[in-house]
Amino acid sequence: MAKIRNIDLGEFPLLLAPMEDVSDPPFRAVCKANGADLMYTEFISSEGLIRDAAKSVQKLDIFEYERPIGIQLFGSDIETMRACGEIATKAGPDLIDINYGCPVKQVACKGAGAALLQDIPKMVAMTKAVVESTHLPVTVKTRLGWDESTKNIQEVAERLQDIGIEALTIHGRTRVQMYKGEADWTLIGKIKENPRIKIPIFGNGDIDSPEKALEYKNRYGVDGIMIGRASIGYPWIFNEIKHFLKTGEHLALPTIQDRIDVCKHHLDFSIRWKGNHVGIVEMRRHYANYFKGIPHFKEFRMRLVTAFSYDEILEILANVQAFYAQGELVAE
Score class of each variant (00 low, 15 high):
2 A>F: 11
3 K>R: 15
13 P>R: 07
17 A>N: 00
19 M>A: 02
25 P>V: 10
26 P>Y: 13
40 Y>C: 01
53 A>G: 09
54 A>D: 14
57 V>C: 06
58 Q>W: 13
58 Q>K: 14
62 I>G: 03
63 F>E: 05
63 F>K: 06
64 E>N: 12
64 E>Y: 07
72 Q>M: 02
74 F>M: 02
75 G>V: 05
77 D>I: 13
80 T>S: 10
81 M>T: 03
90 K>P: 14
97 D>Q: 00
97 D>G: 00
101 G>I: 04
102 C>A: 04
103 P>N: 11
106 Q>D: 13
106 Q>W: 08
106 Q>P: 09
108 A>R: 08
109 C>G: 13
111 G>S: 07
117 L>Y: 05
118 Q>R: 15
120 I>A: 07
120 I>L: 12
122 K>G: 08
122 K>T: 12
125 A>I: 10
127 T>G: 05
130 V>T: 01
130 V>S: 04
130 V>A: 02
134 T>R: 08
142 T>V: 14
146 W>K: 08
146 W>N: 07
149 S>F: 10
149 S>G: 09
153 I>R: 02
154 Q>M: 15
156 V>K: 09
159 R>P: 10
159 R>E: 08
161 Q>T: 11
162 D>N: 14
163 I>T: 04
164 G>F: 03
165 I>W: 00
167 A>L: 04
171 H>M: 11
174 T>A: 06
175 R>W: 04
177 Q>M: 10
178 M>L: 14
180 K>P: 13
187 L>M: 12
188 I>E: 00
191 I>Q: 07
193 E>R: 13
194 N>Q: 07
197 I>V: 13
202 F>V: 05
212 K>G: 07
215 E>W: 12
216 Y>W: 15
224 G>A: 08
226 M>E: 02
227 I>P: 03
230 A>C: 03
234 Y>P: 09
236 W>N: 03
236 W>D: 02
242 K>V: 03
243 H>M: 10
249 E>Q: 12
253 L>H: 11
255 T>W: 08
260 I>E: 06
261 D>S: 15
266 H>A: 01
276 N>Q: 12
282 E>M: 07
295 P>W: 05
296 H>R: 09
296 H>Y: 11
298 K>I: 08
307 A>Y: 02
308 F>G: 10
312 E>T: 01
312 E>K: 07
313 I>G: 01
317 L>E: 00
321 Q>Y: 11
321 Q>G: 14
324 Y>G: 02
325 A>L: 13
326 Q>N: 12
328 E>M: 15
329 L>K: 15
329 L>G: 11
331 A>K: 12
332 E>D: 06
